[in-house]
Design a binder for these strands. Structure first.
Lengths: 129, 129, 129, 129
DNA sequence: GTGGTCTAGACCACC
DNA sequence: GTGGTCTAGACCACA
């Protein structure tokens, strides 16, 4: 399920964190779900166990999962929070995009227009691929 | 004019590069404009000259400025290029935003909707500030 | 493999860049090949790590290699690109030669003639050396 | 007559030196010709007198001109040397081109072919411009 | 004075 | 261990 793109410029731990977060907020990993063990996931993805541990620890701080010593990590996120978490993730990305674009002197209309065009082009490309 | 936030997670050289790019693309630094010397800017911003040199060299490879040994760095970007450069910069930002959001499982409609809402909220905030 | 002539007028980082480019374009360093680490190469060639880092970063912007923080630099150039890259490099050299010669008032015929003579002389020298 | 391209990456003193050398070997500045004074040339070209002085001093070392204290610099090159000097200038450029290209693994045939093609293309462009 | 190259060595994030 | 950023300061070429 989880995949790592070793060639990407995005750090491995960031890729993992994003995918797990998405899995949780989308319901694929429901509350109480037992996450794969650090060692197992490390050998499966062929990355360093320390990296997995770091990801789990950060997800724990962000209240997505909880550790039970001796038995593993478990999803903790409640359904009620999920909708808002998804929105928060997107809001963060949008804020980042907006602030950078405004800094370059673009108007809101230009942002909307550019984004719409790119998404249209993308969807038509996806069909033909 | 130029400001550095030493505490920011964004590297100093990135902060500088963005500000200078914006200055050039917005016309504040017209073609032929002599950039502040490495040493002068370094002492003004209280950062190491090598950091400024790195920024200038990168802006040079990106064709924004040109160096003349012994006399300084000069803005090279022509007015004709500015429009297209502005568009390219925006397109890069939009691509980054889209790819991250799609990766997290969001639909194009959600992107447009979130962006529009944020921009509306922002413009009304700007008025009251 | 890599050698530096400290006494040369050509900057150290230029010497290195050329050799590595040649190694990549000639296939000696295939795509995916892990370049020596900055520190290791620095100690081997007895030059400062920053100089190596500068070379690698420039090769990165020229799309020859890619960095993965924490694990090293890797050759990125695909075989399909190699032929065209080789041609581009030669074209740049030729353009430089032509523009300088024309600027000095030489005719195209003189360029061809001089080049041919030199190459013939060189090949006969190579045989006797 | 003499022109400086301030925007060029080629150092000002190099541009000047080349043009003067060319003027001498082409006969435009015959033996005995009095070169413009340092101050006059500096103000005419709007560059630093030190730069002119440096050029004259180097041309003196290379036996193109000679200084008479109190009266200026004079062309010294004899007609008999001129033909060979022109050839030397071109030979230097050709050697530079060849050595760089060989270093990149190109064959003599490729050099000749690329150069010929570029010169043909150039001459047809010149006609239509 | 200007930029260009290089050294020495620090601290950080990532694996 | 790896690369990424930054500082401090040297020496050189160019104007």
């Amino acid at each position: 399920m989880l995949k790592i793109d070793a060639g990407s410029a995005v750090p491995v731990y960031e890729q993992l964190k994003r995918q797990i977060k998405l899995g949780i907020v989308s319901g694929k990993y429901p509350s109480g779900y037992k996450m794969p063990s650090i060692r197992q996931l490390a050998s499966q993805l062929k990355i360093n166990p320390n990296t997995i541990a770091k990801v789990y620890r950060q997800l724990e701080t962000e209240k997505f999962i909880a550790s039970k010593t001796g038995s593993g990590f478990f999803v903790k996120m409640e359904k009620e929070q999920m909708g808002s978490t998804r929105k928060i993730l997107l809001a963060e990305l949008a804020d980042e995009f907006i602030s950078k674009a405004i800094e370059l002197g673009f108007t809101p209309d230009e942002l909307i227009k550019t984004l719409s065009e790119k998404l249209e082009r993308k969807s038509s490309n996806d069909k033909t691929e």
